[in-house]
Design a protein around this nucleic acid. Structure first.
Lengths: 149, 149
DNA sequence: GAAATAAGTTAGATCAGGCTAACTTTTGAT
DNA sequence: ATCAAAAGTTAGCCTGATCTAACTTATTTC
């Protein structure tokens, strides 16, 4: 039962709002995703049909058991990606955040696991004195400099 | 003048077909992208409007000057990503290919440049005896093993 | 507790991108 | 040169995701 990118975004937003406030309101989902409330309503209707979300009429939105599971994996995907972009590639938060939002819908399980492993591996290495990230940042900066000439 | 993912796919396909055969035929674009010819026709109409492509009625499709430039950058994006997935993360061709196709529409210029730099850096390191990829593959394999227990 | 405000919903439009079916033009075989 | 097959096109439909405008229900405030 695959979700579209868009539905993943909604489920992710519901998940995050539930995590931080216990339940999600339509208007908060809307403002988080920069869409209008009718868009949220129709998306929620869709997620209800898929049994990922529950909502009493005019009330709060909450995740079902299955919804929680799915949301968790979507959020994890985002997190892993974001972490990788920042801690391995050394991107700024702004760019990392935007790219993570878009790329997350496109990475396979396999790729994701390797991105995570790479970040972990590099972190482990750095505890042993071989600071990959630092060396790479230096390399990257130099290379950028030389391109500007 | 930003292109949708879908339009990027069409332009990329036209670019590749032109590279290998000098011009693209509607049916070849269709089979490359797994869509029907009417879909191609309407996409081409769109790319014509954007001046990225030319075509005499019932004839071949070719890139304009601007189209070539754009196609080149899209193709490069794909290539860089594919290379990274294989040579840095160690994914199999199949997965790398599929993921590259989907992720390419989502990576920013900044992320792309760093992915490229990371791949180059690692390659350079490996010429100096520090075989990152090899070590990482080992790390990854071990970690997968221990998860299976 | 009634009126005003906020939140949620419904109806209906639009747009992109895909499809099928039917048609036209081009190509190629005899 | 003709006519069958292949390639390209057009028309029209469908789905997903968005929007605005208008409406309904809940909440807040006096």
């Amino acid at each position: 039962m695959k979700l579209s990118s868009s539905m993943e975004d909604y489920l992710e937003a519901v998940g995050e709002l539930c995590n931080q406030k216990g339940a999600a309101r339509v208007k908060d989902i809307a403002s988080k995703l920069n869409v209008t409330t009718p868009s949220v309503v129709s998306a929620i209707k869709n997620l209800k049909r898929k049994q990922l979300v529950e909502q009493e009429r005019y009330g709060f939105v909450r995740l079902t058991r299955q919804g929680e599971k799915t949301a968790r994996s979507i959020i994890r995907r985002h997190q892993v990606l974001y972490h990788f972009l920042i801690n391995v590639l050394g991107l700024d938060y702004e760019t990392a955040s935007k790219d993570a939002c878009r790329i997350e819908h496109a990475v396979s399980k396999q790729t994701l696991e390797r991105l995570l492993a790479a970040a972990d591996y590099i972190e482990q290495e750095s505890r042993q004195g071989l600071n990959w990230s630092y060396e790479f940042q230096k390399y990257y900066a130099d290379r950028e400099d030389s391109e500007r000439t």
